[in-house]
Design a protein around this nucleic acid. Structure first.
Ligand code: SF4
Ligand code: SF4
Lengths: 143, 143
DNA sequence: CTTTAACCAGACAATTTTATCTGATTTTCA
DNA sequence: TGAAAATCAGATAAAATTGTCTGGTTAAAG
């Protein structure tokens, strides 16, 4: 299977986007995220607990508890979630899987892939959650 | 883990590039590929057997046997190997993992990711094995 | 103060991916 | 003809990823 992000990372990205757009001042329970995004509840819960360790989300226990953003929406970028879950290794390794990505021994598609890789990185780094809000709402509302 | 291609696919790409540059008219045994690319022999052998089913490689049994390209190097592109092993699904699905990639409900990074995805596809489709030969040799010789 | 709804920690299970093994067959060559 | 070197098919094993369960703790609300 060809994959960009692990399932965990995809779910993490989706969940954070969901929280950012549906928080209304209150904490969002895992159950709600699970239903909206069709992710198993315990699984998304686990992932958010992991993201908590990175400071990207916070949580409150007990009734009316749930998850919320750990920083201002204007301070969170998609790359932050990717880094927390999958790491940034892919942005520094060979697309063909050759060991070592050195300038004097580039893989055969170096000149093209290197550029794409950087653009992908820039893309994830470019916009903050608040800037993505409108488009996120449009997507999630049609799920 | 973040990944572009599965290990199988990476190994398949590397192995085909190796065969294309080291065939010298004869069949290349899995053992030789295994040593050169540091891929477990039985594993690369399996992968090449799979690629044989797609017509990308051929094989001869017995002593002095091994694998060879199933087509002219000028007729094989990297995308062919990717398609045979991992399929082309990634070039038609959402980078954030949202179900359905529809024009009226694009994911929040649609306008940027869509372009990158197409460029990646074009990259893999652009050059044939013979065109990649020189750069491949340079990479493999420094492994 | 009891019920309820939530997070949380850690074990557990299922699935997929990656890798190895075993034995059979084929071909070359001395 | 027999030993050696290779593919090949299928079973098996190991590892990683994905998903589930159990029981505990916390906090709101009646
Ligand atoms: S293109 Fe160059 S930099 Fe990019 S992955 Fe291949 S070797 Fe590494
Ligand atoms: S950007 Fe649009 S086309 Fe690309 S993956 Fe996201 S939804 Fe699909």
């Amino acid at each position: 299977m060809t994959v960009i992000f692990s399932k965990k990372c995809e779910y993490g990205l989706q969940a954070i986007l969901y929280i950012a757009t549906h928080t209304m001042g209150k904490a969002v329970p895992a159950e709600k995220i699970s239903q909206a995004l069709k992710i198993p509840r315990e699984f998304v819960s686990k992932i958010l607990q992991d993201l908590k360790a990175s400071g990207l989300v916070g949580s409150v226990k007990g009734k009316a508890g749930g998850f919320f953003l750990g920083k201002e929406p204007s301070q969170i970028k998609l790359i932050d979630i990717v880094e927390a879950i999958d790491g940034l290794e892919m942005f520094n390794s060979c697309v063909l899987g050759f060991p070592e990505c050195t300038p004097d021994a580039p893989c055969p598609v170096h000149n093209k892939w290197g550029i794409l890789r950087d653009q992908a990185y820039q893309m994830l780094k470019a916009e903050t959650l608040d800037q993505l809000k409108e488009r996120t709402l449009n997507k999630i509302s049609k799920l």
